[in-house]
Amino acid sequence: MEWKQRHVLDLDTWKREELHYILEQTSSMDELLDRPIKKVPALRGKLVVNLFFEPSTRTRVSFELAEKFLSADVVNWSASGSSIGKGETLRDTAWTLEAMGADAVVIRHGAVGAADYLARKLKKSVVFNGGDGAHSHPTQALLDLYTAWKKIGSLERKKIVMIGDVLHSRVARSDIIGFSKMGSRVVLSGPPTLMPRSVDALGATYDPDPRSAVKGADIIYLLRIQRERQDEGMFPSLDEYHQIFGANESLLKLAGADTIVMHPGPVNRGVEIASNVADGSQSMILGQVRSGVALRMALLFVCLGGVRQ
């Protein structure tokens, strides 16, 4: 297959065969993580800059491990204490990165479209979107796909139920695209105030009652509830949220014994998920973390290791 994606900005331009290809490649990388020496020389001499405008330990560490296992030179550039905090525009930052000879830039930014913007400004470097505002988080979606695919096989005609704050979730937006492209049916649930207006434009359906939504679900995917949402008045209290929309054992029973539980982390125990569900046998949460490293290795290798000069 010829790889046509120059950057990894969003999954909306991907075809199913491209998703499959990356899952297969991730599988090979996953194997590598079991070896005594996890480092391979594949990206020796390539410079990757991790440009983080928002604190995100998980995504950054996951990218950094992936880059290091592939022997890339890694520079972490974060907003605090750098010129970014002093009013330098993203455009200037972009040109600085290019002048430094970055082969790839991983960007995490609070503004929607920041990764697209960077990709427009950079002539040579490959841009990986590490999350832009509430818009897109493609590497999270891919690692979720991989985790689910490894566990339950083909995702065709599977049912995934996402519960929580879809409105503010970049993870939800990317996962809905990803799972839909793999042939899964996506059902959303959660308070109506945390749902986007045109759920059908995402190719999903909405069921306000999580107890009916999870029936027959192959995957229950819980989204993080940010405490600020309560302060903004999007729902009355965390307590009420947990009682109605939180994932507990009784909800899991309604779904079935083979249903897997996923969560992008970090987990708010007692809010969107009860501890015994997060730590239970149906939980894939730690598997997602491991998949993250393998998936990012696969993406970096495919986008940087190949023919493109």
Partner: peptide
């Protein structure tokens, strides 16, 4: 599988595919 160890990837014409090592 030696794909990740190659030093001539840029000279190849096809997309490199990582196969399994076992």
């Amino acid at each position: 599988d030696i794909t990740l160890y190659r030093d001539d990837l840029t000279l190849l014409h096809d997309q490199p595919v990582v196969h399994s090592t076992s």
